[in-house]
Amino acid sequence: MFEAVLLTVITAATPLLIAALGELVVERSGVLNLGVEGMMIMGAVVGFAIANLTGSGALGVIAAIGAGMAMSALFGFLVLVLVANQVATGLALTILGLGLSGMIGEAFIGVPGLRLPELYIPGLSDIPFIGPVFFQQDAIVYLGFALVIAVTYVLFRTRAGLILRSVGDNHGSAHALGYSVIKIRFMAVLFGGACAGLAGAYMSLAYTPQWVENMTAGRGWIALALVVFASWLPLRVVIGAYLFGAVSVLNLHAQALGLGIPSQFLSSLPYIATIAVLVLISANRRLTLVNTPACLGKPFVPDR
């Protein structure tokens, strides 16, 4: 029983983890992309469609990443090149993604899906309890963990990461030192789009292998909240993602066990938890302020 619960927690947490990691990198560069939900749902529908048409899960995943990046490129062009308002553009991106995905996905409603294979690692996968939980997962779960390590390493141990953080902290100074603020931010935005697309693919190819309209169901928004929850630190994103994953799984199990709690209340639990955690986090202002990218959401126009 516990093993099964843990397995479902991992599956519930993975899309949150990946999407939030991408958004964390975007926000560290000083850009606020509220369109995570829209990029994610586009990843879900394109991933499902391509996997279904080609019969290849891998192609589906790659197409989903491409779809997320295409959406983020549109966002990046609007807010970085044309200096449009980031909040409004991000909201518009979400609305666009939800609408467009519904249109693309119409043909795929009710079509049986394709599930990404679980990778079997000889030896490790046979360990009782640990094996099934940690070493019989699909590739995206492993990729999620690899991303946590990679993002942490790049952000805090490499020059590229230092430059990215400097652009988010003070774009004026970074420009004065000769760094191309717009180019660096564009790359970060594309990475965020790729992650959101991948998270979307996980939804439609592993979590529930089918296409249902609006199937991301607000997970993009939770991913956004997670970034703040984690005070822009990748390792805390892991904690947050698993916390939120656990709350949503608890919801399912509570319903299955027939507890006398209205399912609507249980469905709203992750969102209530988001609000509660945001309130708690903002009480510690020093922690939040020191890690918050100071230029977050501020438009940059070079004075040339």
């Binding site: 230092l162 953080r165 902290d169 003070n170 004026g172 004065a176 890690n291 990218p293």
Partner: peptide, 8 residues
Amino acid sequence: HFSLFEAL
């Protein structure tokens, strides 16, 4: 003014 990165 302001050419340093305060968080670094």
